[in-house]
Design a protein around this nucleic acid. Structure first.
Lengths: 110, 110
DNA sequence: TTCTTTAATCGTAACATTGCGATTAATTAA
DNA sequence: TTAATTAATCGCAATGTTACGATTAAAGAA
């Protein structure tokens, strides 16, 4: 059906999946890396930087914004985007808890 | 078009997106967490544990296996799955490098 | 061999994602 | 006001994902 049965999983599992999903496209990874690199509000030149059409970039930015990972400020006719530091840290904690799981040394594996 | 234009991104960006994508569904998050919790090969009871139909679980396991994050050993009529520790560590390094990016203190944000 | 058990694969329906041309909305400049 | 600029939204086509019933494949048990 293409529909994730989110009721059958924990909130934490659904949250991890939501964050991971937004990182699941190289354009969004690229946008985030660029915002980190510039370390300032980026006003407008994302379309030239990434190499996708303007409506496509706008859509990717929307997803990042809705998850709270970036924030956009209207500045004249352009909109300036930057990383939402606080929310990024929160997201990081959730993802790290998942990724830092480790297999114990006693490999009781077949 | 629904097709990610992977040629226009770096190998690293595409790799991050691929890993993230596989974590982008709560069933796969759940499977991985269960394998970590059990810390042993799990032979068969994943279907009962997760709560999705057998072909669905099998499909999710396939994706995890193809990315190298788990390995499956045939044991009689059942197949035993466990975390591929070495590949998990490699994946973790890639993802941590991305997640650990941080905004510097001087907020030159609008 | 036949029956049982277990997991993979097939096929398909329902739904989601991606990309972009065209349009709209909002702001500034002339 | 009108024109120019910029980003969001609309609409749609192409593609991808998810779920599962039905079937198949492979191994062990009777």
């Amino acid at each position: 059906m293409g529909l994730a049965k989110s009721e059958m999983f924990t909130d934490q599992q659904n949250e991890i999946a939501l964050f991971a999903k937004v990182f699941g496209h190289p354009a969004r990874v690229s946008i985030l890396q660029y915002l980190f690199k510039i370390n300032a509000c980026v006003c407008g030149d994302l379309v030239n930087e990434i190499g996708l059409a303007q409506p496509t970039i706008s859509q990717h930015l929307k997803e990042l914004r809705h998850l709270g990972l970036i924030k956009g400020n209207v500045e004249g006719t352009s909109v300036c985007y930057c990383i939402h530091a606080e929310n990024w840290t929160k997201m990081k904690e959730t993802m790290l808890a998942f990724l830092n799981q480790d297999v114990a040394e006693n490999e009781n594996c077949c």
